[in-house]
């Protein structure tokens, strides 16, 4: 009984985080992006500086008609948003925010593999959407998504593998328990590679070629309306949370901080995650979209060699200090 209650409570907490944090990131994006462009952003919804803008958006999405194109593959089309969204919910379960047993949804032995594997599944949703929409823009978007995933999955994995090597474990809390501050400079290249590859996998600007709205409308999501479209957007923002959380846990030392390591560790995790989410928005505002060939070139000629070099460095240091 107690176990069941515990599990239910954890699931509930993760679910609430899953529903609220993406909204917080989305609202922050609205405001930060606006101010970085000399604007104010939403000001009316909810009264104080438009804090309820995304709730209003959600209500709007819910009211819209759910359209399935006549030529579309109905079932795949309708299933795609769920396939895109659910993996991120599962990944959130495995991210530890504090040092104690209770600060993680579910301790997994092969945490890194679980997280990366399930994140890769999320892209399947975009592919399904792209193909099933019976729309050439969607198909192009799907193709680009697939090409991008294939290109960036490798450096991401290699960068994560470097940390796993350093820690000698693939469990996420295990990595954090093994963390020392000097890992930060040691793994910095891996961290950058991981973060950039993660951005590309989420199709966030400047890596948003698969949804480049000025060329292919909205890529795989062109034909979607209403709640299903909202689910895709939610998946993107949940993906930001997951990516920032993972980068925090793998490279920035999660709950470790200059002070207050015990008790306030979760605060450090959240702070670092929030900071990274800000960087995600910052990058989006600052850089223009990469062209498809530049995108592939960046991955294969820069990120993959860098991550391999990081692994070599990790191996050398590991051998030297042991």
């Amino acid at each position: 009984m107690n176990d069941a209650l515990d599990v239910a409570l954890r699931l509930l907490v993760v679910f609430v985080v899953f529903l609220t944090f993406p909204l917080i990131v989305g609202q922050t994006e609205h405001k930060v992006m606006a101010h970085m462009q000399g604007r104010l952003g939403p000001m009316y919804a909810g009264g104080f500086h438009g804090w309820a803008q995304l709730i209003a958006d959600g209500v709007k999405f819910a009211q819209k008609e759910d359209v399935v194109p006549a030529g579309a593959d109905r079932r795949v089309f309708q299933l795609a948003p769920a396939v895109a969204l659910l993996p991120y919910l599962l990944v959130l379960l495995a991210i530890p925010i504090g040092p104690s047993e209770g600060a993680v949804g579910q301790v997994l032995d092969a945490g890194i593999f679980f997280v990366l594997a399930v994140m890769g599944v999320g892209v399947l949703g975009s592919l399904m959407a792209g193909w099933a929409s019976a729309n050439k823009f969607s198909l192009l978007g799907g193709l680009r998504t697939a090409a991008q995933l294939l290109a960036y999955e490798l450096p991401m994995l290699l960068a994560a593998a470097s940390v796993a090597m350093a820690a000698g474990t693939v469990s996420l809390p295990g990595i954090l328990h093994a963390f020392h501050w000097w890992w930060l400079p040691w793994q910095i290249v891996g961290a950058i590679v991981f973060f950039v590859a993660g951005l590309a996998e989420l199709q966030r600007p400047p890596f948003d070629m698969p949804v480049a709205d000025s060329e292919i409308i909205f890529g795989a999501y062109t034909e979607y309306t209403g709640l299903r479209f909202a689910l895709f957007l939610l998946a993107e923002y949940a993906g930001i949370i997951v990516l920032c959380g993972l980068t925090t846990v793998l490279f920035l030392g999660g709950w470790h901080g200059p002070w207050g390591a015990d008790g306030l560790g979760w605060l450090w995790t959240l702070l670092k995650t929030a900071l990274l989410a800000f960087v995600v928005i910052w990058l989006r505002v600052t850089y223009p979209r990469l062209r498809e060939d530049q995108l592939q070139k960046l991955s294969w000629t820069l990120l993959v060699p860098l991550s391999l070099a990081q692994i070599a460095l990790t191996g050398i240091v590991k051998v030297v200090i042991s």
Partner: peptide
């Protein structure tokens, strides 16, 4: 076999099927 399970998802579902779908879309 937790490790094998996640590797299965990572390699086969995450990469091989994506490659397959990529080819089919082409």
């Amino acid at each position: 076999a937790e490790f094998i399970a996640w590797v299965q998802v990572l390699i086969y579902v995450g990469s091989v099927v994506v490659l397959l779908l990529f080819g089919l879309m082409l």
